[in-house]
Design a protein around this nucleic acid. Structure first.
Length: 289
DNA sequence: AAAACAGACAACCGCTCATGA
DNA sequence: CTCATGAGCGGTTGTCTGTTT
């Protein structure tokens, strides 16, 4: 339950006369017409100017998630679902980043779909939706071992069989290789939420020493275009399959055609489009530091 | 038919960050 | 540098709707 006393901290939504709850078609029309006429922005004052009894945040949310012409409604397609799974394995709960790679879908929609469908689906498959790792890393029966090997080969971000989150041996190449990528992701994300706890909790960041999160600086910055192109490459089957065929002859490290979140450092650095030799070197330097 | 329950998703809240005065 | 404000994000909750009992 929401804490009534906390509402006083958010003056924009606590004013008397501000309507809450589901939007009516009339309100939608007023908001749509106003934004089409006047444009987006200045959300705090928009309700008054448009003649709506809503807070600015509510107007923004309604526009962003439902009224924008580019918002796609309807069921999530299987290919979109696959994309969400891969991006979540790479990005964690960065819903806006994930949504940014899926045209027409909003962060709220993807977040809801994840919480109501995909997380349950992964759990039913024995996969931890947070970490994308098997829920039971030490199965007792041979059947379970087989099942988990299959799961690991398709969805585990660290399919290296030596991986053990609780041991020094867990510092495998797979885990360490994510480090630079994680590092750059945080720079990309406007340095937002650079918190040790969050980094530890994020699935694909498991095993990352927390001290690194406080050392994020500009020298490892990768610009938006580079990051965007990089993500495109990550979600492209062909690129990753060819990379793995070239660089990972070991069948243990082969990935299925539909799941390949396991990123090795060499792949990450070499796959980064437009990355200079200096930047690659910086990435290696950070990894070794 | 109606109540209870569960699932889906729309919306809200608190927080952080960016920017400008 | 500090403060105020706007904007955006992710977690959580409320409400609606379909299903089961």
């Amino acid at each position: 339950m929401r804490n009534p006393s906390s509402a006083a901290k958010t003056p924009c939504c606590s004013k008397v006369g501000i309507k809450k709850g589901p939007w009516t078609p009339e309100e939608d029309e007023i908001l749509s017409n106003y934004i089409k006429r006047e444009g987006e922005g200045r959300w705090r004052t928009l309700p008054k100017r448009a003649g709506l009894l809503r807070c600015g945040k509510s107007c923004r949310l309604r526009w962003m998630n439902y009224l924008r012409p580019c918002v796609k409604r309807g069921r999530i397609a299987p290919d979109e679902e696959d994309l969400i799974l891969r991006l979540h394995r790479l990005l964690g709960n960065r819903w806006s980043l994930i949504a940014g790679r899926i045209p027409g879908r909003t962060d709220n929609e993807i977040k809801n779909y994840w919480n109501t469908h995909l997380s349950k689906k992964l759990i039913s498959q024995g996969i931890d939706p947070r970490t994308h790792k098997p829920l039971n890393p030490f199965p007792s029966s041979s059947d379970n071992i087989e099942d988990n090997n299959h799961l690991a080969s398709t969805s585990n971000p660290n399919p290296n069989p030596d991986f053990n989150p609780g041991s020094l041996e867990s510092e495998t190449a797979a885990t360490q290789s994510n480090e630079n990528f994680v590092f750059n992701l945080h720079n990309h994300n406007q340095n937002k939420k650079v918190e040790d706890n969050e980094m530890v909790m994020d699935g694909f960041m498991m095993g990352l020493p927390t001290s690194h999160s406080s050392n994020i600086n500009q020298e490892n910055y990768v610009n938006e275009d580079t990051f965007s192109s990089f993500l495109d490459s990550l979600i492209n089957d062909t690129v990753f399959m060819s990379l793995h065929q070239q660089q990972q002859p070991n069948p243990v490290h082969q990935l299925s055609s539909s799941h390949h979140g396991n990123i090795w450092e060499g792949e990450v650095l070499s796959a980064m489009p437009g990355l200079s030799e200096e930047e690659r070197a910086l990435g290696r330097h950070h990894h070794l530091a």
